[in-house]
Design a protein around this nucleic acid. Sequence first.
DNA 1: CTATGTGAAGGTGTTCACAGCA
DNA 2: TGCTGTGAACACCTTCACATAG
Lengths: 216, 216
Amino acid sequence: MERHDGKLRRIPETTIRRLPAYLRALTLMGHDRVTSDALGQAAGYSSEQVRKDLAYFGAFGTRGVGYDAKMLAQEIRRILQLDQGVRAIVVGAGRLGTALVRHTDEISSDVVISAVVDVNPAVVGTQFDHLTVEPLERLEAVIQERDIGMGIITVPQSAAQAVANRLVEAGVRAILNFAPVALTVNDPTVFVQHIDLTLEMQALAYFVGSAARSEP
Amino acid sequence: MERHDGKLRRIPETTIRRLPAYLRALTLMGHDRVTSDALGQAAGYSSEQVRKDLAYFGAFGTRGVGYDAKMLAQEIRRILQLDQGVRAIVVGAGRLGTALVRHTDEISSDVVISAVVDVNPAVVGTQFDHLTVEPLERLEAVIQERDIGMGIITVPQSAAQAVANRLVEAGVRAILNFAPVALTVNDPTVFVQHIDLTLEMQALAYFVGSAARSEP
DNA sequence: CTATGTGAAGGTGTTCACAGCA
DNA sequence: TGCTGTGAACACCTTCACATAG
């Protein structure tokens, strides 16, 4: 929930999910001022969509002119809490977990991976640029010590639910789950996002055999 | 578009995206018969949702009883065209591309990666279980030779649009894009799905600081 | 005269409630 | 009786159209 003057409105999840795309487009364009039309174009959405999304949080633009790019980027960072240094733990240093850690190292995203843990003793101790893989037992400890709010699950299916339970118990507020299983999380205040490459590819197979429109 | 008796209705994209989850749940449960309630539970959706989704394609169940699991799985495979042997090409054998190829090797998904190409000569020739990385120049040739319908883009941002253009020109019907950029694809019959780890993590940051519900 | 901010309209997807059939 | 299949109600999101401010 977000406060705006006296108004208090529910923010659609779809809006939240578009904000990072606006943020990236703003950075990529590199202009001082942008219009909702130009920003929408760059991010792959309509200008009305851009204005509606931003209007949930306030009136950031100047009528007849557009938006101050730097100021708008700062506002979006604030809304997404990216200015607060969000820290994440990666559970599972297998192929996917490793690729993910290195990936986010290269692309600065304002979400920092602050810990990597794995159950396999042979993997524990592996060094990344600035991180060392720690034993799974340390999960709760590092979450508390480093004030980690986000959990990223890249363990096999069979271990995923147990890991999710421990993450929630340890106090993370959001989970990004790459394991191929629908997690059950009792605490309704913990947000769970599921990314499943196999399911995505299977869904895509449908469109290989039929006309469809593209999606930004 | 899908034909059903005389009826011809538009299938919601959301429905298509849930079908693979149903398929996995069916396999995982391993029962002979399932109810929409049990299937929904396992896949993470409501029973009404399951019934509505399936009803777009026909009446597969028996009232008062449920669904024949094996038969239903077969129907879903047919709807998604997974029984037709959908073949995909991975463009970009970097960290993510490699992880993806090995990942889909392990988890059988009925979508087969039939080619991997890369622009870097040092990477060309790298051997996977049953695949060899081929030069980027061969992109059009292998798509034609192996009747490939799906393109998976795991190249850097700067190269993604050009790769997309070549994939579309070469005749793929669907694209899965992991590059952090909103692709422009002129042909509206080509379906584009964008998976962006950075954007996902940034959106998730919002929920680290606010109450939210979980999503299956 | 331009581009924002926003109520109203329109469309799409989900949930409800129950009729219909084994 | 039990569970499917489905119209109707509802909730949600996007697009339209325009008043409004610079």
